[in-house]
C-alpha cells in the first residue's frame, strides 16, 4: 500500500497546474527514490520529469514500487478542491484501481477525501542522455515567464542565444521583431534575483513559444529557473522545488530542414 502525506499540499496543486495542459495522462511512480513522473506531451515535443523526494513528505510510505496511471486533468480537478494551506495525503491500497486524496485544513477542522479512478497507461521509460551543455542560464523565473509572454504577442517562435554578451531572446512576426537581452547580474539584494550565465561555447536554438509559455506555468514553484542549452539537443528548463526535488521540462528545438 501507499501513503504519502505532504504538509505543503499547495505544492502538489501547483505541480498539477504546471503540467496538466501539456500532458493528458501519466504514470506517477512511487519508489524509494521518491514520487516521480515522466511523460511526453501529446504533440511529442516536450517531456516532463518530476521528482518529489521522500524527505519532503511528512510521511512517505510505499512498501513496493507502485505506478499509478492518472488523467492529469481529473487529478487537477480534485486537487483544486484542496485549500492552498491544506495538508494532502495520497493513499492507495495494493491492487486497487483507485487513489484517494485526503485534504486536511491546517487547523484540522475540515477533512475531505476524494477518490479518483486510476487508468492503465502504457508508457516507455525514456533514457535521458548525459549531456555537457554549451550554456547554462539561471535567472528569476518570473523574468523568464514575462519574456516568453511578451515575445509571444509578437511571434510564434523564440531564438535563445547565449554569447559573451548575455542571453538573447528574439522573435519575429508579421508586425515586427523583438529582442530581449539579459546580462549576467549578480549584484542583487537576494540571490534568487541574480542572472547567472555559464557559457562553454556560444549556442543558439529555436523553440516554439507555445511550449515555452506552457512550461512557464511552473513559475509559482520556484523563484528561479535554469535553462540548459546545447546545439541539437532538447533544452532543459528546470524549476527546483525547494528541499524536495524538481520539475524539468525537456523541450525539442526546431531544426533545419
Amino acid at each position: 500500500m501507499l501513503e504519502l502525506r505532504l504538509v505543503q499540499g499547495g505544492l502538489l496543486k501547483k505541480v498539477l497546474e504546471s503540467i496538466k495542459d501539456l500532458v493528458n495522462d501519466a504514470n506517477f511512480d512511487c519508489s524509494a527514490t521518491g514520487f516521480s513522473l515522466q511523460a511526453m506531451d501529446s504533440s511529442q515535443v516536450a517531456v516532463v520529469a518530476l521528482l518529489l523526494r521522500p524527505e519532503g513528505f511528512e510521511r512517505y510510505w510505499c512498501d513496493r514500487n507502485i505506478s499509478m496511471g492518472m488523467n492529469l486533468n481529473n487529478m487537477a480537478k480534485m486537487l483544486k478542491c484542496a485549500g492552498n494551506d491544506d495538508i494532502i495525503t495520497l493513499k492507495a491500497e495494493d491492487g486497487s484501481d483507485t487513489v484517494t486524496f485526503m485534504f486536511e485544513s491546517p487547523t484540522q477542522d475540515k477533512i475531505a477525501d476524494f477518490e479518483m479512478k486510476l487508468m492503465d497507461i502504457n508508457s516507455e521509460r525514456l533514457g535521458f542522455p548525459e549531456a555537457d551543455y554549451h550554456a547554462i542560464v539561471r535567472m528569476p523565473s518570473s523574468e523568464f515567464a514575462r519574456i516568453c509572454k511578451d515575445l509571444s504577442s509578437i511571434g510564434n517562435t523564440v531564438v535563445i542565444s547565449v554569447t559573451k554578451e548575455g542571453v538573447r531572446f528574439s522573435t519575429r512576426g508579421d508586425i515586427g521583431t523583438a529582442n530581449v537581452v539579459c546580462r549576467q547580474n549578480t549584484a542583487v539584494d537576494k540571490p534568487e534575483e541574480a542572472t547567472i550565465i555559464e557559457m562553454n561555447e556560444p549556442v543558439s536554438l529555436t523553440f516554439g513559444l507555445r511550449y515555452m509559455n506552457s512550461l512557464t506555468k511552473a513559475t509559482p514553484l520556484s523563484n528561479t529557473v535554469t535553462l540548459s542549452l546545447s546545439s541539437g539537443l532538447p533544452a532543459v528548463v528546470e524549476y527546483r522545488i525547494a528541499e524536495m526535488g524538481y520539475i524539468r521540462f525537456y523541450l525539442a528545438p526546431k531544426i533545419e530542414e
Binding site: 525514456l126 542522455p129 525539442a252
Partner: peptide, 14 residues
Amino acid sequence: LKSQARIARFFQAS
C-alpha cells in the same frame, strides 16, 4: 527553414 523536431529522436527508450 526550421521544422519542429519530435522529442523522441533525442531519447533512447529504455
